[in-house]
Every structure is written in C-alpha cells, then in structure tokens.
Nucleic acid binder design. Structure first.
Lengths: 157, 157
DNA sequence: CCCATATCGTTCGTGTACGCACGATGGCCA
DNA sequence: TGGCCATCGTGCGTACACGAACGATATGGG
C-alpha cells in the first residue's frame, strides 16, 4: 500500500478560504478536456481493432473514404488538423501503403490524396468498431447525458 | 474566396443511406474531445498571460503551489500525467528556474519538487487569469450548460 | 534475513500539435 | 499584363503523450 496521496505536513494550503469560490484546477474546462481526451484516446487504442492506427489517422482515413480524393490542406480542415500536423499524419499513412497521392492536374501547388485498396479495406474494418469506441468512452453516462455531452462539445469546438 | 469545401465531383459518398443511422466522425466523442481540447489550449495560450507557459506546466505549478513539496511521481498522478511526460515537464520548469528539486531524505528513489520564489511569483500572477481562460473557453454556453459540461466531463475522466 | 515484487525516475522511440519561415504557385486588380 | 497577396506543401523547433525497458531502491512475506 501507498501512503494516502500526501503526508500530514504536505496537505493543501489555503484550508480556510474566504467566501470567494476558490480556484481548483480539477474543475477547469481545459484540464477536464485534457483528461477526457486522454481517456478517449486510450479506449480508442485498445478498441478500434488495430493498435497501430491512431485517432487522427483514423479520422483522416474516414474522411478520405467519404470523399475519395482530397487535397492535403482541405483534408486537414475537414478533420481539424494543422497543415504541419497533417503533413506527418499523411506521411505515415503513405509509408504504410494506406494512402496514395498524386499532383493536382489543375493546381500545381496541391497534392491529391486518396485511400489505396488496402486503406479502404482497413477503414471499412475499423468502421465496424467505431461505434463501440464511442459507446465505451461514454459508458459512465446515461443516454440523455450522452446526447447532452455531444451537443455541448459541439458548441465549444 | 475559396471554393466551397469541395468540388462537385468530390461530394461525400453514401448520399442515400438506409434507415441505419450513419456514422459521422464529427459526432463521435473522441473527435469532439480532441477539437475542444485544441481550442481550449489555444485560448489558454493567448489568455493566461505568459506565452511560454503551457497548460500542463501551469497545472503542475498550481499543484505545487497547493502542496509546497511533492515527489515527481505523485505530482504526475495529481495532474493526470504519465511519468515519462512528467519528466519532460519538470525538466523544462527546472531549466527556467521555476521549480527546484532535492532528493527525498526518507526514500532514495524519490525526488521532491517545489516552486522557487520566482515560480511562486509567476503562478500567483497566472492564477489571476485562470478564471478568465475557463470563462472564455465556455463562452458559447449558458451558465447552466457550463455547469452541465463540467459535470459530464468529470464523469468520463 | 533474504528474496520476490513493487515503486521511482530515466531514457528511447513514435506520434500528435502548432508556430514560423520558406519557396513555388495561383488569382486578382490596377 | 505585371505585380501584389493569398494559398499550398515542406522543414524546423518545441512541447505533450505514452509504451517499453532499465537500474536503483524499498518493502513485505516466508
């Protein structure tokens, strides 16, 4: 057994705070979002069906599966990723043969991305587990709370 | 002006889906948590008052301000960070002279961490802006929705 | 008392995440 | 038409995030 969080002399300060509501880091949105995101990622990793696919790689592939072909920049906007971040995600997907690219014939600045046959096969397999991942993440909530959470998150994104 | 998201021939597939509710990546918790966390971090960065302090560094310093002295591992548990992640966070705070460390006299495996005088001064300055960061992040929500969101997030962390 | 087991902190490898600067290209308007 | 400005992709630097492996230390049960 470990000692219970902290030794006697290490107890939190500010035991007697005035009427002003004290600031607790555990009650701040940013902190809770970070923790919740960590847990969601962990659940994704064990439940999606392929330990080598990350959440961002998954959402990129899902979007490419919807649109067939997209420029790297547009894909980034659709999945909410910085172009510098997108760069790395796409590079790794290409290295694994899941995504292909070709220059845009109409705009020399752009690269058009698409799923390879293997990429399509993989996404369609992972999509089967997608709902289970979300279900597991929101397991502690009632059905109504789950709807509420999604709605509230949509508003602050 | 940019073309509106996608060209004609690039419209999403599965236009006619059967009665089965289709799977939209934008409606999945994990996806929304990632986006919301991104936005929260961006707001933190511009509103906390020091562009060189990150959210994780901030929460570590706030906890050290509460407990005066903590082992690196315990601090990590209190702020929800992996020990490998904690390592880097602490190293950077020490390099900037905000945190000090000494070996635990009672346990040779542990390192005790504490804020330096400068670290204390900085945290107390940042703590003034803390509430504003949370307020700005939840600005799109009503007061009731804000309470709901915090409660729901607490349940799934 | 000694050894199996656990904890603590470090290091390595991989993967997001983003600001910034860069060169190439494209679009618009004077 | 020529030049200005935006966009696209890349590269670099910094910072979280975590699994895995490691050596040192601590602890409890036989």
């Amino acid at each position: 057994m470990r000692s219970n969080v902290a030794k006697k002399q290490q107890e939190p300060k500010s035991a007697s705070s005035p009427a002003s509501r004290q600031y607790r880091i555990e009650e701040q949105v940013g902190y809770l979002l970070r923790r919740a995101h960590q847990r969601a990622s962990a659940i994704f990793q064990v439940s999606i069906g392929d330990p080598n696919i990350t959440p961002t790689q998954y959402s990129s592939m899902v979007k490419l599966n919807e649109y067939t072909e997209l420029s790297q920049n547009l894909l980034g906007r659709l999945v909410g990723m910085d172009k510098a971040t997108m760069q790395g995600v796409v590079r790794r997907l290409k290295e694994r043969g899941l995504v292909d690219s070709r220059p845009d014939p109409g705009d020399a600045r752009r690269t058009l991305l698409s799923l390879t046959t293997e990429g399509q096969r993989l996404v369609n397999k992972l999509l089967i587990n997608g709902p289970a991942v979300s279900r597991e993440t929101m397991k502690p909530l009632t059905a109504q709370e789950q709807r509420q959470l999604l709605e509230l998150l949509s508003k602050i994104v």
